[in-house]
């Protein structure tokens, strides 16, 4: 019996063990700081997008919630942080960003409570229209949001009262990376907890989860709220680093792009968000300069190919390659 117990325990621990390839993305993030200091502004935007994609992975990759409106929470966070500074004059970066997370999470909790009772196409439509509705609201509430012209007048104080914002964006890069690290550790802890495994169960067979006594709706709303808060944090960072928020933060295309990034890297594996986002945004930066149509066509084609042949994303494809070799 104890032998079986040891085997079982070892088996379960194996999944959550830290593996050496996990160091690679972090090494790359640190290396970028030294190797390509001219690109740190782009690097900051990539890191913010990774946080956003990571938040989507929690609900899509683990809980199986398909959404076309995740930008709703990114945008809620961005506007919350931006308006806090522009209207109330509070520009302390950490708390302002957390405020974005709180508002994002609140929006996620309220909408999730209502929407997560629905499934399939209905849920898809509801997430999509909820995000657009928020965009239209932001458009109409011109006095507060700046409407179509965007929210200006955001001024952020030096980080920790000391580190001011330099031309090359070093401070922001470091700030964003630390936030990413915290978000990642939170996400990693969650997915390996019993709570996280229950989400995988809901994704795998919701009927069974009802059958083992799981309050499914409550679980989904909880992870949705956590995910939305994380998206709100990303939005808050976005507002701070750009000192400018437009309606675009809530747009359908932002919801779509984060989905594409995540799927490109691979869902349900946390690091898919890193790889997909980095590949997407680097390619975009390079190719869109040459020809926007070429980039758009290319990313469309890539998406079609990924869906048809590499459904587990770039990381999944890598994994398959390694398995085949050995």
């Amino acid at each position: 019996m104890t032998e079986h117990y040891q085997t079982a325990r070892h088996f379960l621990r194996e999944r959550e063990r830290w593996r050496w390839p996990e160091a690679l993305p972090w090494l790359a993030i640190v290396a970028a700081f030294f190797i390509v200091p001219d690109y740190l502004a782009l690097g900051t935007q990539i890191v913010i997008a990774i946080i956003f994609a990571l938040s989507l992975d929690l609900i899509l990759g683990y809980a199986g919630i398909i959404t076309l409106g995740h930008a709703a929470y990114f945008g809620a966070g961005a506007y919350a942080t931006g308006m806090l500074s522009a209207h109330l004059g509070w520009g302390e970066p950490i708390s302002a960003m957390l405020f974005g997370g709180i508002i994002g999470g609140l929006a996620g909790f309220i909408s999730g409570w209502v929407l997560l009772r629905y499934h399939g196409l209905t849920l898809l439509m509801l997430t999509l229209t909820t995000a657009i509705l928020m965009q239209e609201t932001a458009n109409a509430a011109e006095e507060w949001t700046g409407g179509f012209d965007g929210l200006v007048g955001i001024s952020i104080w030096p980080l920790l009262g000391t580190f001011d914002y330099d031309l090359w964006g070093k401070t922001y890069y470091c700030f964003a990376v630390v936030v990413l690290l915290v978000c990642f550790l939170v996400a990693r802890t969650i997915v390996h907890s019993a709570f996280g495994r229950s989400l995988v169960g809901i994704k795998g067979n919701v009927e069974r989860m009802h059958g083992v006594g799981t309050p499914v709706h409550g679980r989904l709303v909880t992870i949705y709220t956590i995910s939305a808060a994380m998206a709100g944090v990303a939005g808050g960072l976005f507002a701070e680093s750009n000192a400018y928020v437009t309606l675009d933060v809530l747009s359908f295309s932002r919801s779509g792009v984060v989905l594409i990034m995540l799927v490109l890297g691979g869902t349900g594996r946390l690091y898919g968000a890193f790889v997909g986002t980095a590949v997407y945004m680097t390619l975009e930066d390079e190719l869109a300069k040459l020809s926007p149509e070429f980039w758009e066509f290319g990313i469309g084609l890539l998406l079609v190919v990924v869906v048809l042949f590499f459904r587990r994303g770039l990381l999944g494809a890598l994994e398959d390659l390694r398995v085949r070799r050995s």
């Binding site: 469309g300 990924v306 869906v307 048809l308």
Partner: peptide
């Protein structure tokens, strides 16, 4: 294209068709 994914879930449908829209938009431009 479409027929290959009839048995797949909505996410795959969405992704494939978004890919096609992007390609169509670029081609028309």
């Amino acid at each position: 294209l479409y027929r290959r994914l009839y048995e797949a879930d909505e996410l795959d449908h969405v992704l494939l068709s978004i890919g096609l829209v992007l390609m169509a938009t670029a081609a028309i431009t």
